Amino acid sequence: MPLPDLSTYTPHRTITNAAFEGVPVPGLRAEFFHRTGGERAASAARYSMGGRDLLLAWGWSDEQHCRFSAVRDPEGFWHPETEGCPVVEILRDGEAPDAPVTGLAIRTPAGQWVTADRAPARSR
């Protein structure tokens, strides 16, 4: 399944400081799109941080989770799409479960992590 062409979708809503997996992530922008036609409505979401696209997720509006997803590398290329939602880790400023959220890391199909973090760089 190729990446969705968002120019064929209608913008639905945009959320700044969006939540991922129910956890608000400062600086995360989520843009949601819809496209009707046929029996089902298609949906897509583009996540970005600091003006850099991180993730595309798409599928059908009547499904709870994404059907496909793709991660964008900091170099600017999209990794191959995978079925289902990506593996995402919420990054925090410290080890405590209530430590402030600073960003997120998304695992590529090859097992590498792409991070978008507002805190100083640190090793994973």
Rank of each mutant, 00 (worst) to 15 (best):
G84L: 03
P100W: 00
R29P: 04
R29D: 06
M1N: 08
P2T: 05
R124K: 10
P24A: 07
E95F: 09
T14C: 08
H12F: 14
F77G: 11
Y9K: 07
R122F: 07
F77V: 11
D98N: 14
T8M: 04
L104Y: 07
P2F: 00
A42S: 15
E95S: 12
E95N: 06
M49A: 14
L55C: 06
C85Q: 12
P97E: 01
P97Y: 00
L54R: 02
G51R: 10
G94Q: 01
E89Q: 15
E39K: 11
A18N: 05
P100E: 00
A42R: 15
S61M: 06
A119I: 11
F77I: 04
T82W: 00
T115C: 10
R92P: 12
V23L: 07
H12D: 14
H65Y: 12
G103K: 05
E81Q: 14
P26M: 13
V114T: 06
A30T: 05
N17Q: 09
E31G: 06
H12Y: 13
R107T: 13
T8F: 04
L104A: 10
L56D: 03
A42Y: 10
G38R: 07
I90D: 01
D62L: 04
P86W: 02
N17V: 09
D62F: 10
R72F: 09
G22C: 05
S48Y: 13
P74K: 08
C85A: 15
T82N: 03
S7R: 15
V71Q: 01
R40S: 09
A41L: 00
R118F: 00
N17T: 06
E81H: 13
M49L: 15
R46N: 04
D93Y: 00
S123D: 08
F32D: 06
C85L: 02
P74W: 02
Q112H: 13
A41S: 14
E89C: 09
P4T: 08
A119N: 09
G59K: 05
A57V: 15
P109T: 06
E83P: 12
G76V: 05
S123P: 05
A110R: 08
D117S: 05
D73I: 01
W58H: 13
C66H: 03
R92N: 02
V87C: 01
L3F: 06
V88Y: 13
E81K: 07
Y9S: 14
